[in-house]
Simulated assay, not measured.
Amino acid sequence: MKKIEKMIWIAVLCFLSSNGRSQTADTLSQKQKFQDTTNMRRNALDYASRQFAMVRPFNVEFSQVAPYRYTPKKDGSSLPESKVSSYHHIKANANLYFLAKKKLILGATFSYRYTSADNDFTVPSSGLVQAVKNDFTYHSTSLNFTYISKIFTKPFFVNTSLIVDGSEKHFERLKGLAIGTIVLKADTRTKFMAGILVNVDPSTQLPLLPMITYERKFNNGMMLDLIMPRQLLVRKHVFERGRISMGTELDRNGFYLYNINEHLPSQKYEYRQIELDNGVIYEHLIGDYLILTARTGLKWIAISRLFEKEKTFSAQWLETSAKPTAYFNVGISFNPFAKKMLGK
């Protein structure tokens, strides 16, 4: 989900409340908070880094997916069932901030992903199984700008990103994202915001996307964390330096392919996969700034399509339907707000 996910983490920068610095109590009043734009900016980066590992200055992850079966479909007709016998990927990202003033933030995000898959493909004409191993590289760079303002005394944010992505062979797409977001409620127990995302990408199905973020803390230490369409999680601090979360996260994987159509050898293709990861997340603070994260559960590949680069995501050249499978993910990241994240 990466281009939408990147815009979502920029959007959550508007979560700037009297409790915007995680679980610790704040002696400033809500009115004072909203008047101090410098503090708003700090709280924005704090909140975003607590929510998404990809927002932190540095993050690296390894994911392994258990074998699963899938059914390809081309031109509306189903092909014989095949199997992915091995699937894993490594991804890393870094965030730099060039300028951080009272009312604006200027920075850049660099992302890299390596995907390896072993596919036991059933040849339609003969029914024989052919083993195919593929390795794919995907990278993207974005320039991000956030402007902080107010509407009717409520914090309001305009965020824009200019993104270029590609493979190990070429740069492929230049895309733009913009979002306007307003904080509707923010106190020590409840946070609520709404926004509209504009996706400037000729291949997208969703040029406009409404966004809702809702956080609710309960007396028993549990917290409901809803960021639509990104995640629905129930969180709780455990032990002295840990946090456990249960629920669903939306993720996206993708890359570019070449020389796969013998009739059009020069045609470029793009593969996109929308996933729902259902399970448990455990985060553990190492030292003061490093966070070790482990995820496991059931992965459901909701949408998987291969389409010509010049066409939209809905005009698929090949589509697959996959069965749910187990997954495991482990990562480590550097977070300057790590101790606040875990209530330290």
Score class of each variant (00 low, 15 high):
residue 42 R to K: 11
residue 214 Y to P: 03
residue 105 I to G: 01
residue 30 Q to Y: 04
residue 312 T to S: 14
residue 114 Y to P: 00
residue 106 L to R: 02
residue 143 L to M: 13
residue 213 T to D: 14
residue 337 F to N: 15
residue 133 K to V: 09
residue 243 R to W: 01
residue 36 D to G: 04
residue 45 L to I: 12
residue 59 N to P: 05
residue 178 A to E: 03
residue 135 D to I: 12
residue 51 Q to L: 09
residue 210 P to D: 08
residue 326 A to L: 14
residue 4 I to R: 11
residue 178 A to V: 04
residue 241 R to P: 05
residue 66 A to F: 13
residue 153 T to W: 06
residue 197 L to C: 06
residue 59 N to G: 10
residue 103 K to R: 14
residue 171 F to S: 13
residue 62 F to R: 14
residue 216 R to L: 14
residue 257 L to D: 02
residue 256 Y to M: 02
residue 272 R to Y: 04
residue 194 A to E: 08
residue 33 K to E: 12
residue 91 K to P: 01
residue 235 R to W: 06
residue 283 E to A: 08
residue 40 M to L: 12
residue 300 W to R: 09
residue 226 L to N: 00
residue 47 Y to C: 02
residue 246 M to V: 14
residue 332 I to E: 02
residue 85 S to L: 10
residue 189 R to E: 09
residue 29 S to P: 04
residue 206 L to W: 11
residue 106 L to N: 04
residue 311 K to L: 13
residue 337 F to M: 08
residue 176 G to I: 04
residue 202 P to C: 06
residue 95 N to M: 03
residue 269 Y to K: 02
residue 116 S to C: 03
residue 148 I to H: 10
residue 230 R to G: 10
residue 64 Q to E: 11
residue 138 Y to M: 07
residue 124 P to L: 09
residue 142 S to W: 03
residue 24 T to Y: 14
residue 41 R to L: 13
residue 316 Q to E: 11
residue 198 V to C: 12
residue 93 N to L: 05
residue 209 L to F: 08
residue 9 W to V: 05
residue 189 R to H: 11
residue 238 V to H: 05
residue 150 K to C: 05
residue 6 K to L: 13
residue 290 L to G: 00
residue 55 V to D: 10
residue 237 H to F: 07
residue 87 Y to C: 11
residue 310 E to G: 03
residue 276 L to P: 00
residue 69 R to L: 09
residue 80 P to N: 06
residue 198 V to I: 13
residue 75 D to W: 07
residue 56 R to H: 00
residue 270 E to D: 00
residue 139 H to E: 06
residue 263 H to L: 12
residue 240 E to D: 15
residue 127 G to W: 09
residue 142 S to M: 08
residue 99 L to P: 01
residue 169 K to I: 12
residue 119 N to Y: 03
residue 199 N to D: 15
residue 330 V to C: 00
residue 268 K to I: 02
residue 179 I to R: 10
residue 318 L to I: 05
residue 190 T to V: 12
residue 57 P to M: 06
residue 146 T to D: 08
residue 17 S to E: 08
residue 29 S to W: 07
residue 185 K to E: 04
residue 38 T to V: 11
residue 328 F to L: 09
residue 234 V to D: 07
residue 165 D to H: 00
residue 88 H to Y: 13
residue 36 D to N: 15
residue 307 F to W: 10
residue 195 G to P: 07
residue 337 F to V: 04
residue 77 S to M: 12
residue 250 L to I: 09
